[in-house]
Design a protein around this nucleic acid. Sequence first.
RNA 1: GGCGGCAUAGCCAAGUGGUAAGGCAGAGGUCUGCAAAACCUCCAUUCCCGUGUUCGAAUCACGGUGCCGCCUCCA
Length: 494
Amino acid sequence: MTLTFYNTLTRRKQPFEPLEPGKVAMYCCGVTVYDYCHLGHARSYIVWDTVRRYLMWLGYQVRYIQNFTDIDDKILNRANAEGSTMTEVAERNIAAYFEDMRRLNVLDAVEYPRATEHIDEIQQIIKTLIELDYAYPAGGDVYYRVQRFPSYGKLSGRQLDQMQAGASGRVDASDPESSRKQHPFDFALWKAAKPGEPAWESPWGPGRPGWHIECSAMIRARLGDTIDIHTGGGDLVFPHHENEIAQSEAATRKPLANYWLHNGMVNVGGEKMSKSLGNFTTIRQLLNAPNAPHPMALRLFVLQAHYRKPIDFTAEAMASAEQSWETLKDGLLFGYKFGNVLGWTDTADASFGQPDSMRIPDESEAVQKFRTAMDDDINTPAALAVLFELAKDLRREGNILTHEGKTTTDSQLLREQWQTLVVLAQVLGLETQPETETPISGLSEAEIEAKINQRREAKAAKNFAEADRIREELKGQGVILVDKPGGITEWHRG
RNA sequence: GGCGGCAUAGCCAAGUGGUAAGGCAGAGGUCUGCAAAACCUCCAUUCCCGUGUUCGAAUCACGGUGCCGCCUCCA
């Protein structure tokens, strides 16, 4: 089995071969921190987190870097609108980013470089590009000369003469910037500061970096000239990633990244969720709402589709994911709930339930199927099918244990199944712990037994209304009654 | 206009030449005073349409239809 990725650059699936055996240099385009993250961001970072987790599980040492774009028109606009500063807006949204992502169990990157921390490196690349004639200063700005880079368009599969400048309807021909460009697709590496804007000194006058150059500079500074994997949303392929390639490869004469991976969009009613369309739901809106789904249900919702396909966000799909999460959760909690009954000796250990401490048989069918699925361009829907089969099996065993008090299935086999589920789920970032605050009923066992006796008498007297009342009363206190054949009533805390 | 993607059950979604995974929802049964829970069973002769290639196609080719993304804000 070999791990393969669909590489946007080559438009086909390719076996993954890192530059250095056992190590992976991975860069993920982060957010521009002018607002809260929405579900589109959630999908992107959940997906790349999952790729990273899988690589780690395979034994790679993954150096995962993700940036924050903390200088940008939108941040400036936001700061002006609320009468604060660019730094304040950025800091607030960076803090919110971490809050949201950690709830979704997205692992922290190794480093989070910011554009404003790399002004020197940015200027260095711009200088080099000017020296090599790939860039030209114009009126305090510096532009990249796209026609100078023969393979411009290789990532997005387009050619300059076939592109329609301004097709997106966002280019204003009267914008003075476009008159300074030698070609409509030339893009800004450095932008002259307008009065009152934050600015850095440069050989071209005070200003700030353009959007694309920061990634080129940060990758070079933190990971090197060529990295293994570069990821981001599909909407970044053009122009952002195309421009990154043009900048970096012109300056270094080396490939920027060997594998380019892009995730599909989150849609609403068939249309892309985006700020400009106003059809977005922020992560915190969703997760903080009354009757909000569990964050893991959102993660599951994302992973139930292949990462390259668009997914439609609907209330129905989310509700389905919530139910699915309940199923998975039952399986994941199996060991905590039934380990003692099954005679496992380590349930009190601190390491109990920790995926890192579990040794699962690599040759088991479940693990093999999981790996086959994940090796095939991170096929998480197929991988999840493996988890559900394990979880449903465990849930059934757990129900039998609850209702019968014993099972005919071998305890060690159940332990192996449970550990396999916990480990594989963790690779997908799906994790849960038993509730710490158990809603323990204030009733003692004797009191419960007394109630059950009352109910038995009511039933014997055919007073079913009273019998049902007692059953409801106990249910309200977290005690579930199960009537068995022969007039026996068993109970357990729900 | 250019480039790219998608179409599989009520909903979501794998599968890309060998006879339709999985989830959600649903149905029937056992049990029960009833209900709930639990357990058992069932749930696409068919993969947008047409033509073709093949012993064999959801999978390949050609031609349609519909939807979506990108073409300098974007995850």
